[in-house]
Structure formats: structure tokens, C-alpha cells
Amino acid sequence: MGNTGHGETFLFWVGSIISILGALGLIFSKKIVHAALCLCTVMLCLAFFYMAQGAVFLGVVQIVVYTGAVMMLFLFVLMLIGIESQDSLVETIRGQRWLAVPFVLAFGFVLIGVYAHANLPEFVGTDAANAKGGGNVQSLALLLFSRYFWAFEVSSAVLITSATGAMVLTHRERTVPRKSQREISIERFERWGKGEKVSLTGLPNPGVYAQHNAVDTPALLPDGSPSEASVNATLRGRDTVRGFRPLPLPGARRNGAAVASRGDAGNEEVSQ
């Protein structure tokens, strides 16, 4: 103990304040991109701490893997979903927040108390630990490949599981080969020839309103009524076409939220 330099102390206090602010921002920011950026801040601060404590390798890994790879993946996903989209932040469970606050405070106080009372054994220090293997990376490698080789091996099982799981949950195999534009065209004319009611010229494009510019916005016919054909059939099926019904009030439960509650209380509603 006591070998913490002044510079490190200063870095710690500055970094920890930034880090905690970042963490709070992550939770309370309404825009999801802001939350992601706050998370980046937290992770960078952590990386600084690691480095300041002599765990350079860990610090670099923290930046490369978390701030670099994982956060970028997050942001990609956010871009794909749409930066605009955001979850409703209205709490629907009665008492949830009022209960959460005391629990969080209690947990925080307990932990502060715990650390205040924690009576830690003498630290060995990173330098001493590093000396064993002849360097930080070497020491880590030594531990990883000898002492903890089994955990290391078994984590491969976790990784394979994750990869397979991601495939299972997202990869959609086509049941039929994709039709080319030519084939679609030929088919359309064949059906028209049989007297079916198909649009030979293709369906109208989605509409462009002043407010919205998206595929769920129907085009308007000359008489001002929306053209149902201009919106993708899936969206029509899901009833998420704009303009067919009044715009939803902000904060109302989204479609499909009814599925989300299936606890005992939900069970009760269903069964009675």
C-alpha cells in the first residue's frame, strides 16, 4: 500500500468522476446514441485506470476490444435500426421506480460501507506480479496457458455457442432461390394473361409527406386518399402504416407490447 503516486491519484479522481458521470448518462440519456457514447467514455476511463495501475495489456485490450470492436458493433446496429428509434421511457409498472430508488441507494450505501471497512491484505503490486513471467503480457500468458488453461479451453465452448446461437437466431436460409427481375416480370405478365388482376407497371412507390419520408408512408391518390398498394404488404399486415389511422399519441403502448407481459398477473388476465 501507499505506493500510489500523486499523478495516479489525480488521474483516479478525475477519471472516476468522468466515469461515473458517463455511467449516469448511459442510463438517463434519452437518445440511444448518446447512451452509446457515454458507454464509450466509461470504457475509456476504465482503460486509463488499468494502464495507470500498470496493466497496460488490459488497458489496450479494453480500448481495442470494448471501445473499438464492441462499441462499434453497437453503433452499427443502432444505425441499422435507425438512430431515431427510441424506446418509450414511461414506466408502466406501478411502484417500480419508487421501489428501485431505495434499493439502489441501499445497495450503494452498503457497498460504500463495505469498502470503507474492507481490510485488504498487503498488495503485491503489478510490478512484482509482472516480474514472475518477465513482463505483463508474458505473465498473463503464463497464467492463461498454464494455471487457467482449462477455463481458457472451456471458454471456447462458450464462444462456439455464441457464434452458433447468433446464426440460429438470425440467419434465414432461403427456401426458394431468389427470383431475378426478369423472372418476376415474366411471371407478372403470365398472370395478367390469365386474367388475374395484377399491376403490370409495378406498384406505386411509397408516398412522400412533409413530415415523413419512409416506406411506411402511403402514397396519396389524386383524390387525396392514401393508396394501400403503395405500402409493403408486411407493414400492412402488421398494421404499422402511417396515415391509415391517426398518429399514435406519444407514450402509448406500442403494438406488440401486449405480448411482453406474461407473468402471473398476465396469466390471470388471460385465463379469467
Binding site: I93, A260, S261, G263, D264, A265, E268
Partner: peptide
Amino acid sequence: LRKLQSGFVRS
């Protein structure tokens, strides 16, 4: 007690 079992992850 069943009321506590609301079906919401956050609770």
C-alpha cells in the same frame, strides 16, 4: 404474491 410476478424483466 402473484401480483409480484408481473412478467416484466425489470421488476
